[in-house]
Design a protein around this nucleic acid. Structure first.
Length: 575
RNA sequence: CGGGGAGUAGUUCAGAUGGCUAGAACGCUGCGUUUGGGACGCAGAGGCCGCAGGUUCAAGUCCUGUCUCCCCGACCA
């Protein structure tokens, strides 16, 4: 591709960008923002996307077949699975004006994912045990009504995604395939150049499943997720579910007299600590929740917060929300802000976090407006429960309960996820198969996603320097960036080399601008970040050849003309 | 969904308390000089001041509404 014929231009930095990936992708002419969370992929960016898709497709073809579903489907698909009213990012498509509506006033869902479409489709075709297991995938544009798109391609309203769905005759078979998918994903990330920094991470199953799901998290300073990793076992957990054990502080050896402290309007751990002259880890935080099984009281040490996902599991409830002020008053007998674990009524479920198990002389709310209890002790003042639970949100410094080691905690960006859906969707659409015994049985399903366009952002964010992007070889938009300086004869020679490289199948971007200055061309080459740079100039030709340099290195080599192809091939191999 | 900021040239921005025949830089066009790390001179083109109402002799500037974008937080299958 000749640079002068390519659509899209580089630009100088003229404002502050939210991150390096955004700056370089925009300035390099890879993408152009059209709206909040909506980008045009310019030719350079699209080439990167196609490279990523190629790798993903190659690995997916080994474990499934590609198909393509429509981006819009009748709302019935989503009503059937019960998700039409519950998914908060769902977009709907309707005719835009009266003329259009007069023609067709049906409503469609703009799919954010395709479980709801593939399940009924699969049901149409595969009903015999002989058809199972099977898996299909597609690479397609998805739409989600994100409230706040951010960080360039990392979170957008419209994005490219690979989604794979697998179907099985048993939970065991699904589990076995889950591992196959995991393996395929691992290969994808390795080939993309981020294998070493991408972690298989347990996460909440969310709406989809009671089980955990798994995410592939790439370590990234600007990432949105927090990953807790056990270094000895390499197990990783998303913050939302990370099991945790609190670090214990030294406790008093003697119990002090319990006292009721009057603190008018003192609400919240910070205020309380200032008021009473104690530390957050000497206090307890008590929250009152409403569930379908009744009121739940949960308490954690003051320096923690309650993890509602954990609490749901521990309490065995499906719905959990903070109780209303009225309920709180009824349960505690006090206004909001003074709840504690003393003198609770007997008819509520109480779950206490293990971080408060070994506290001595601790504080808790008085369950009496404006009152707090100080120097509370187990046994003497409150009955010690038989069991403490882990219902806290993990934080940096916490221990992994299984090994008692301090977690390594890092920020990361989710580049893929896999869900064991079991029968959630197949049940919803009435998908069963006929087994060898002639009976109808449940179909098990799994769902597996890779955020293609997000990967471009993640990789650009990960591989760059002060001058621009440094693309990993497998997904660089071109393999060689050739530039020319000097007289017409240098350009003529460059054109020869350009044609030769193209004939040999080397992807080359030739900066053939005659007006641009040398500095401009060098800077653009660095910004765009193609792995190998080849310079053809009067000076290099006088010295007997061309100059070749890897993007990630500073070293420039002079190569004789007849060795250009070999040297480039060698450099590409090495990078 | 809560809080904050901003819409003026292709882009980034400046245009107190109304007086504008609307500016700058970068980019763009032409001519010339340059050409090994974002060159220089000269000459130019380019604007419904987001949109709709209102106040005023006069609105980019004030008021109301509306749309959009950006940032922080909550949420995120």
């Amino acid at each position: 591709m000749k640079y002068t014929k390519m659509f899209g231009k580089t630009s100088k930095a003229d404002k502050k960008y939210e991150s390096r990936s955004v700056e370089y992708l925009v300035r390099g002419g890879f993408v152009d923002q059209v709206m909040a969370g909506g980008y045009t992929f310019l030719p350079l960016g699209l080439r990167v996307m196609h490279k990523i898709e190629g790798i993903v497709r190659d690995e997916m073809d080994k474990i499934g077949s590609e198909l393509l579903m429509p981006a819009i489907v009748p709302t019935e698909f989503w009503k059937q699975t019960g998700r039409f009213d519950s998914i908060d990012v769902l977009f709907k498509v309707v005719g835009a004006n009266e003329v259009s509506l007069a023609r067709n006033n049906a409503e469609y869902v703009l799919n954010p994912t395709h479980e709801d479409v593939i399940a009924p489709t699969a049901k149409k075709f595969n009903q015999s045990y002989k058809d199972f297991p099977f898996a299909v995938y597609q690479i397609q544009t998805k739409f989600r009504n994100e409230v706040r798109p951010k960080t360039g391609l990392l979170r957008t309203r419209e994005f490219r995604m690979k989604d794979l769905y697998s179907f099985h005759t048993s939970a065991e078979d699904l589990k076995a395939y889950y591992e196959v998918a995991r393996e395929a994903y691992t290969n994808v990330y390795k080939r993309l150049g981020i294998g070493d920094d991408t972690y298989y991470t347990a996460a909440s199953g969310g709406d989809f499943t009671e089980d955990f799901s798994h995410e592939f998290q790439t370590r990234l300073e600007t990432g949105e997720d927090l990953v807790f990793r056990s270094q000895s076992t390499n197990e990783c957990f998303n913050k939302e579910i990370a099991p945790s054990k609190a670090v214990m502080y030294e406790q008093d050896s003697q119990m002090k007299e319990m006292e009721e402290v009057f603190g008018e309007g003192i609400i919240g751990v910070d205020d309380l600590c200032k008021f009473m002259g104690i530390k957050p880890h000497q206090t307890t935080k008590t929250l009152i929740f409403q569930s379908e099984k009744g009121v739940i009281v949960a308490a954690v040490r003051g320096d923690y917060d309650v993890n509602e996902l954990k609490l749901k599991k521990v309490a065995g409830v499906k719905k959990l929300e903070l109780a209303t002020e009225d309920t709180v008053e009824k349960v505690t007998g006090a206004k909001l802000g003074y709840a504690g674990i003393v003198n609770l009524p007997g008819d509520v479920m109480v779950f206490l976090d293990d971080s408060i198990e070994n506290l001595v002389n601790f504080e808790t709310g008085g369950n009496k407006t404006h009152y707090h209890m100080a120097n509370v002790n187990w046994g003497r003042d409150v009955q010690k429960p038989e069991k403490f639970y882990d219902i806290k949100i993990a934080k940096e410094g916490d221990l992994y309960p299984v090994t008692n080691e301090v977690y390594e905690v890092f920020k990361a960006s989710e580049v893929g996820n896999i869900f064991p859906l079991n029968t959630k969707f197949t049940d919803a659409v009435g998908y069963t198969f006929t087994d060898v015994d002639g009976k109808q049985k449940q179909v098990y399903m799994g769902s597996y996603g890779i955020g293609i366009s997000r990967l471009i952002g993640v990789i650009a964010e990960k591989f760059n320097d002060e001058f621009g992007i440094v693309w990993p070889i497998n997904i660089a938009p071109f393999q060689v960036h050739m530039l020319t300086l000097g007289s017409d004869s240098a350009y003529a020679k460059a054109e020869e080399i350009y044609k030769m490289l193209q004939e040999k199948g080397v992807e080359v971007l030739w900066d053939d601008r005659k007006g641009a200055s040398a500095g401009e061309k060098f800077s653009d080459a660095d910004l765009i970040g193609i792995p190998v740079r080849v310079l053809v100039s009067d000076k290099s030709l006088e010295k007997g050849g061309v100059e070749i340099k890897a993007r990630k290195s500073k070293e420039v080599q002079l190569i004789e003309l007849d060795k250009v192809l070999d040297s480039i091939t060698a450099m590409l191999k090495a990078s």
